[in-house]
Amino acid sequence: MALLRVTSPHAHGPMSTPRVMQQVLLATLPGIAVLTHFFGFGTLVNIVWGGLLAVAFEALALKLRGRELGIYLRDCSALVTAVLLGIAMPPYSPWWLIGVGMASAILLAKHLYGGLGYNPFNPAMVGYVVLLISFPVQMTSWEAPRGIGEVPGLLDALRACFTPGAFDGVTAATPLDVLKQNNSLLVDNLWASQPVFGRWGGLGWEWANIAFLAGGAWLLYRRIFTWHAPLAFLAVLALMAALFYDGGSSASGGSPLFHLLSGATMFGAFFIVTDPVTSAVSVRGRLVYGALAGLLVYLIRVWGNYPDAVAFAVLIMNFAAPFIDHYTQPRTYGHRKPQRSGGDE
């Protein structure tokens, strides 16, 4: 959100918006591959159908707003939103669910606020939250991962999307869900009794998280974003988990490793928290932004009303981003900080 005027010197990068967006898309590939391996073609169908809809909604909104289609469509931002939302949604979602999500993301969260660069909230996360609170049953039923159930093929995936009802997949509660539902077992027993837990963060989930971490690391290397927000996010999440983990009972929130490798942690850390439009701008700001988002993820995961929390945490922090920017604005070179009570810093 363009509330803050950052003073010079402005860094100029050689990269244009479309280039950045394309690299982000590229970096999601390992994660998508892992998700597809463990959960079948559902995620791919989500992304392809969602991408078509997102571009169509984007074109519609641009036309209604009297903007030139070509330039804005070519920036790929709608596609990025669609891919991120498609990854976040459960595989084998029906077509209309994806449609409602894309409409909320593109029309409500993006264009009602003035399009790319003016949206205060991350569009993919708005779409996700609208769906989660509106259709909680569909949004919390994940297909059982490979190793527990038979993974449906491509045709089944298409059928699940376009003729919902005809497809009857095997769903299993996600590891975060299972942990929340149990508070009487020792974690070790729980792990042993429930195959969904896998080794660290859930069967399939741990590898998906590692894949998104790899994609994120590549983006870091390409300097698409800086390390501050993701690292602060992960560090605080791990710290909270360590503080509240009592080592044994499943009534506590789960180990730091579990929290880092389960749910949408890595996906959120590298693809959502780093959104340049809706997060804080300055270096210190990004540290604060990431840290608070990590704190919120833990709080909502463990004591909140819904199983995973990245989307809620990010939206709340989107709210706070302009405020954080206000207090972490870097000092202009050669100017002193306005004296308040004598102390400097």
């Binding site: 409602v100 609170i133 509106s134 259709f135 909680p136």
Partner: peptide
């Protein structure tokens, strides 16, 4: 009808 819960929940009022 597949209830669109957002509409009856508080955020729906604002939107």
């Amino acid at each position: 009808y597949q209830a669109f819960l957002l509409a009856i929940l508080p955020p729906g009022a604002f939107i």
